[in-house]
């Protein structure tokens, strides 16, 4: 648990990120070849890291229950398939999800703090977080105030995250930077640092409501921020790219990035997550392909 406050750096000083270098590094990760048993292991690992997510206006208790069932039993016709890490829903469905997932070990994550825009008063945000914590959420996905961030009001962003962290109690806090709105990798790095020093347990790229969502360069910058933070403080912060990762192959590329930037200690669902809804099915299709030898069709995988 990240409770000890470390001397916080001066956030008005920008940590320069070498964009060309990052893109080159990412391109190299994508050339790694993972085959056979390693691939099967990686696909299952990736599946166990998925936060199955439904964040739509038309969500209903029935849909959330359906998603929870899928989270616990991703593909019943095959033995030895792990359940996913968590189900991510809106605050009003936390109780439904909690009930549906009871005893399964699958966690309930809820977005909060006026997701996805973050435009609300601090009091409203804290009330929302308190509400979802009381409903039983294990993890809170908050959004940072991009408005304040762009005004240069970094202390406001920092204090807000710290206040939310306090309201979370024992629940894990994931801080969504919404990197699609941050414009530059320098800003991504800065927002990552602010979030980590303010007490985030996880940093997360995106809400999934903005294009581009998670990209590899952005994730790489955040992973490096986590690495530097770890070297400074000894605290391990988790990472969650969310949105836009739909293919199993892409997911494996992300695992390579994590392994080669942070090491194997981060290669587990406690330290790394995929925020995705369609990725799970593609992972399953690839796993079944490896088991049976035949390319699979989406027709034979539950669509929820």
């Amino acid at each position: 648990m990240n409770t000890k406050i470390h001397s916080k750096p001066d956030f008005s000083i920008t940590f320069p990120v070498d964009q060309v270098g990052i893109e080159d590094r990412v391109a190299r990760f994508n050339t790694r070849s993972i085959k056979k048993d390693s691939k099967k292991f990686a696909l299952k690992l990736a599946l166990s890291m998925v936060d199955l997510t439904t964040l739509e206006g038309m969500d209903s208790p029935g849909k959330v229950r359906q998603l929870c069932y899928k989270a616990m039993h991703p593909h019943e016709s095959l033995a030895d398939i792990p359940s996913v890490a968590a189900v991510c829903v809106y605050p009003s469905f936390v109780a439904v999800a909690k009930e549906a997932l009871r005893g399964s070990g699958v966690k309930v994550a809820s977005v909060a703090t006026a997701f996805p825009s973050g435009h609300a008063t601090l009091k409203a945000k804290i009330d929302e977080v308190t509400y979802v914590v009381n409903e039983g959420a294990d993890e809170i996905d908050m959004v940072i105030s991009r408005g304040a961030f762009f005004r240069g009001d970094y202390n406001f962003v920092f204090d807000e995250i710290a206040a939310i962290k306090e309201a979370c109690g024992s629940a894990h806090l994931k801080v969504i930077l919404e990197t699609g709105e941050l414009q530059t990798l320098d800003n991504v790095r800065k927002a990552s640092d602010i979030a980590m020093y303010a007490g985030a347990d996880f940093i997360k790229t995106s809400t999934g409501k903005i294009v581009p969502a998670a990209t590899q360069p952005v994730t790489q910058v955040m992973l490096e921020a986590i690495r530097d933070f770890y070297f400074k403080t000894g605290i391990m912060i988790g990472m969650k790219p969310a949105g836009g990762i739909r293919e199993a192959k892409k997911a494996l590329n992300y695992l390579v990035m994590v392994k080669e930037t942070l090491g194997s200690d981060w290669l587990n669902p406690d330290m790394f997550r995929f925020g995705a809804s369609t990725l799970a099915n593609d992972l399953l299709m690839q796993i079944v392909k490896m088991e049976t030898g035949n390319y699979q069709s989406a027709d034979y995988f539950s669509n929820d």
Partner: peptide, 8 residues
């Protein structure tokens, strides 16, 4: 083999 075994 692949033309005929692909599930899609």
């Amino acid at each position: 083999e692949h033309f005929s075994s692909h599930m899609d």
